[in-house]
Design a protein around this nucleic acid. Structure first.
Length: 423
RNA sequence: GGAGGCGUCGCCUAGUCCGGUCUAUGGCGCCCGCCUGCUAAGCGGGUUGAGGGCACAAACCCUCUCGCGGGUUCAAAUCCCGCCGCCUCCGCCA
């Protein structure tokens, strides 16, 4: 959630940062009114409670005759305290609820607008010219079949649409990619983590996934647990309710976990293949750092993502997303979008967000800084979303005969194999 | 799933049976000061966290905080109910 002080002192800034997001501007005015009401109620309660405690002390010291007289007064007071407590509770809760609907403050210079209003920061590599090479590229579904790497038909037989099996070399490809990604991160000082993919609502809510994104989340009703859509959730919640040592920051973690997404809002979109699926595995970076360092760390996360994609020799674009695409938590977000030859366009393959103190406030993650105890900043970034990376690898490195070249960096992880060949 | 035990301010711990100066005891650690060739020891003081009074800092004050949430009561660490976590044993299981 956002800082209440910013709301009080600079409501215009809060209003501005909701533009493009789904919250209306009147929400801010309602919030200010609710905040004042809540504070008044708290003051009333505290005043009464102090009086009650004081009388209670007198009762404790009094002898039996004095006690009877004091008790009638303190009984009345107890009634008042009870009422004030209830009033305070109601106002406090409704304020918190409203506050949680407000998205994070935008980072400076973030473009305001919808999903088409992103800025292209950089283009790396060159898409292949298949016309010049004299053949028509196959899409990943076809290649996956030829190589015996992806079985979509049986995926849907067993689990339904948007499910798949990775088979044979496809399964090996996942393990190779994951190992390469985990090693790269570990070399850069990240602690490797395999986190739980089922979490309580606190973790889900704290990371901002139960707001506008709730319809995309799987929930296990009978156990009140949620399937995470990204290991960002368990990694963020890892330090919830903790006070971290400021000297130990940044804390960098890299998690490997399955990701589950209902894709409720995307019926009919990307229905072919494994580009958009209900389940995939992902290697995700997550960092806890000081608010002052967050922006610089965000650039580093983007650099690590770029290194990984570079290593796999895939052409891509770096985009800075506009406000509407930031979700609740992010103050700024960069996507790396890789070239998909059969779609003739760049598609998202990684995404890195600077959530500043937004998630840390909700999850109560603080550190002892020189200026005092305060929330840390959290950041996340994809290193390797396995299914999408497989799509990109197959399509970009394919040859006319249906074989696929293995990028040099990945070869050691595939037993030295330099190419994948049709069965 | 069954039975039992436990959860107190960084760590350990007293208090819980029998509700009231608990406004939470003591030790360790840590911080400040004194003493001191240096270090250690010793002595004195401080040390849960959050929110607010309050626009910044200090001081002071108030509320909340004894795993979490309810309840009883004028009053709850203490009594009652529910939940969570940890430990031991049993059952089941990869």
């Amino acid at each position: 959630m956002i800082d209440v002080k910013v709301l009080r002192n600079d409501p215009d800034r809060v209003r501005a940062s909701q533009r493009g997001r789904n919250a209306s501007e009147s929400l801010v005015d309602d919030l200010l009114v609710a905040d004042q009401a809540r504070r008044d109620a708290i003051a009333r309660f505290e005043e009464l409670r102090a009086a009650q405690k004081d009388l209670g002390r007198q009762v404790a010291k009094a002898n039996n005759e004095q006690r009877a007289g004091l008790l009638t007064r303190t009984k009345e007071l107890a009634e008042l305290v009870k009422k004030a407590d209830a009033a305070r509770d109601v106002l406090d809760r409704s304020f918190e609820e409203q506050l949680k609907e407000v998205g994070n403050l935008l980072g400076e210079g973030v473009p305001v607008g919808g999903e088409d209003d992103y800025l292209v920061l950089e283009t790396r590599g060159t898409p292949r010219d298949f016309d010049a090479e004299g053949f028509r590229p196959r899409d990943h579904v076809e290649l996956g079949q030829l190589l015996g790497a992806i079985d979509i038909e049986r995926g849907s037989k067993v689990s339904g649409s948007r499910f798949y099996y990775l088979t044979g070399v496809g399964a090996q490809l996942e393990l190779a990619l994951v190992n390469l990604a985990m090693n790269l991160a570990a070399e850069n000082g990240f602690t490797p983590m395999i986190p739980p993919a089922l979490v309580k609502s606190r973790a889900m809510e704290g990371t901002g996934f139960l707001g506008q994104a709730a319809q995309d989340v799987y929930r296990l009703e009978s156990d009140d647990l949620y399937l995470v859509g990204t290991s960002e959730v368990p990694l963020a919640a890892y330090h919830s309710d903790e006070i971290l040592d400021a000297d130990a920051l940044p804390l960098r973690y890299v998690g490997y976990s399955p990701c589950y997404r209902r894709e409720a809002g995307s019926h009919g979109k990307d229905t072919r293949g494994i580009f958009r699926v209900h389940w995939f595995d992902k290697v995700e970076m997550f960092v806890f750092t000081s608010p002052d360092e967050a922006h610089a760390e965000h650039q580093r996360l983007l650099d690590w993502e770029k290194q990984f994609i570079d290593a796999l020799d895939i052409p891509y674009q770096v985009q800075e997303l506009a406000s509407a695409d930031l979700g609740l938590s992010a103050a700024r977000k960069y996507d790396c979008c890789a070239w998909v030859p059969t779609q003739q366009r760049y598609r998202e393959i990684t995404s890195t967000s600077n959530c500043t103190e937004f998630q840390a406030r909700r999850l109560n993650i603080r550190a002892r800084f020189e200026a005092g105890i305060g929330p840390v900043a959290t950041l996340n970034g994809t290193l390797c979303a396995v299914t999408r990376m497989i799509v990109m690898l197959l399509e970009n490195h394919q040859r006319a005969d249906g074989s696929v070249g293995v990028p040099v960096a990945l070869q050691p992880y595939l037993g030295g194999r330099t190419e994948l060949t049709p069965r």
